[in-house]
Computed example of a mutant assay.
Amino acid sequence: MVVDDSRIVQIQMEKILSDTDFEIVACCGSGEEALKKYEEYMPDVVTMDI
């Protein structure tokens, strides 16, 4: 799951991870949205712009 308030950074992360074995299950623009989606998808890895 990619968490970043910048859509441009989200797209860059999608490109970086596209040639790997990782599957992006969700992109979130806020921490609140990420918490909701985390419960739904239970991803193994979360990238964040903290």
Rank of each mutant, 00 (worst) to 15 (best):
M13C: 09
V45W: 02
T20M: 02
Y41C: 12
T47C: 01
S30G: 05
V9L: 01
Y38R: 07
P43N: 07
K15P: 00
V46A: 11
L35C: 02
V3E: 01
D5T: 06
A26I: 09
I8P: 00
Q12A: 08
D44K: 12
I16N: 01
V45P: 00
S30F: 08
E33M: 12
Y38I: 13
S30Y: 07
E39D: 05
R7C: 05
M42T: 09
G31C: 04
T47A: 03
Q10A: 03
A34M: 12
E32R: 12
Y41D: 02
K37R: 15
E33R: 10
E23D: 12
Y38E: 05
K37E: 15
E23F: 11
K15D: 14
D49P: 03
L17E: 05
K37S: 10
I24L: 09
Y41F: 15
F22K: 02
Q12D: 09
K15L: 14
L17M: 14
M48V: 15
I50M: 13
T20C: 02
D21A: 11
V45N: 00
I16K: 05
E32G: 15
C28F: 10
V9Y: 00
C27P: 01
A34E: 08
K15A: 12
L17A: 07
D5G: 11
G31V: 08
D4Q: 06
C28G: 08
V46I: 15
V3M: 06
A34D: 07
M48L: 15
M48A: 12
I11C: 01
D4A: 06
S18H: 12
C27H: 08
G29L: 14
I24C: 09
I11W: 06
E33Y: 03
E14L: 15
I50Y: 10
R7P: 08
D19F: 04
I50F: 11
D49N: 14
D21K: 14
K36H: 05
I16F: 10
V9S: 01
E32Y: 09
Q10F: 01
E14H: 11
I50L: 14
C27R: 14
I11P: 00
D21Y: 07
L17V: 06
V3S: 03
R7F: 09
V3Q: 01
E39R: 09
M48E: 11
L17Q: 06
C28L: 10
M13W: 04
I11K: 15
Y41T: 09
C27V: 13
I8M: 10
I8F: 14
C27F: 06
V3I: 11
D21P: 01
K37F: 15
E40P: 00
M13Y: 05
Y41V: 11
E39L: 05
C27Y: 03
K15Y: 09
V25A: 05
G29E: 12
